[in-house]
């Protein structure tokens, strides 16, 4: 089961839940499952303003990325540099 962690901003949607376990093959199915558990969260996570970190690797446009069974998943703001 992958462990999904929610930062302060997303905890406002999860009702304060900081961490959940989920079985998902891809980021897309993980987001769908999150939306089922926390209605409205899916839209937030799938927006262009959100990046995902899987086992420490931060990725944008990661909807179809595989999620390893024991992965740690974080959602972060989409970032850019100079």
């Amino acid at each position: 089961m992958a462990r999904v962690f929610f930062g302060s901003a997303l905890r406002r949607v999860t009702g304060g839940v900081e961490e959940v376990e989920v079985e998902a093959a891809t980021v897309r199915s993980l987001i769908a499952e999150m939306d089922r558990r926390f209605p409205g969260l899916g839209e937030r996570l799938a927006s262009g303003g959100v990046a995902v970190a899987i086992d420490g690797e931060i990725m944008t446009d990661a909807l179809y990325e595989p999620v390893p069974a024991d992965a740690e998943v974080h959602f972060l703001p989409a970032m850019g540099g100079g």
Binding site: S47, G48, G49, T60, P77, A78, M79, G80, G81, G82
Partner: peptide
């Protein structure tokens, strides 16, 4: 409408 940018969206 938000898009990718150099700093934030």
């Amino acid at each position: 409408e938000e898009g990718a940018g150099g700093e934030e969206a």
